[in-house]
Amino acid sequence: MGVLRTISLDEIAVQAKTSGRTSLQVMCSCLEQGIWPLRFVRNSGVFSAEQQRRLLSSKAAIIGCGGLGGHVATLLTRAGVGSLALCDGDAFSESNLNRQQVCRESNLGCNKAEAAAAEVAALASHVTLRVYPENLTAQNADAILLGADIALDCLDSIPARLLLQKQATALGLTLIHAAIAGEEGFFALVSPGADTLQRIYESGANDAEGTNRDNREQISLTAEAVLGVPTTTPAVIAAFQATLALQALTGKELPPPALHHLDLSALTLETFRL
């Protein structure tokens, strides 16, 4: 690989000012000419200049800004995704400090989506942000997902995940799902219109014998409620989630539909065909 032509943050700012464009527009224009913003130059072994430009022109909707979402927001920002919608109605509490990337002593009590937006803005001032300090509902979903190229399921309840998949399907969006408990986590790319989460959460083992649909409330105490979530699990699973999102956004060949299960206690990653 030859020496790459690069442009610094200061040079981008000057060009933006003199040409009346945004820094994001300047960076896209540079990448079209094969000139890499220095902030992304270490991505050049994985992304082409055109793929990097595509990321800058992409919009991701991150639904849930806690354990998974905080990491996903910062990872996608560092990778170069140019526009984010951040959605979470919850506020940080002390028990979040062990694992939630954006949670600090100084922002306890603050809304998670707003705190994630502040973190992203500090990391990358060019990122366009839309912030929704509210939970996803059937009423607000369209507005939150509007214009997104991809949605990331970083939620913490199964009903909310199913609602997100339904809304993403209606909009023809690719969804990147992840869920965690203890030292284990799951992630999956849900293609537009696929019923992956129903297959995981609604038509599981119990329905194979036609039983237990009415008993679902009895098993509502999910694994994470029992085992908690330690420090490293959301970071690792969020990294896989962000990787899948970046692959999809840059037009890379995607793996076949599958549910991936990571077990940090055994250091294993298994892939299951659904």
Binding site: T222, A223, E224, E270
Partner: peptide, 26 residues
């Protein structure tokens, strides 16, 4: 054996079976 299954399926020689509870944390 790496594929989604149900309670009614027969376990055969050499099979690998995984049982998972509901996991919804984020």
């Amino acid at each position: 054996n790496g594929r989604h299954a149900g309670f009614a399926q027969i376990v055969r020689d050499g099979d690998r079976i995984g049982y998972f509870p509901a996991v919804g944390g984020g």
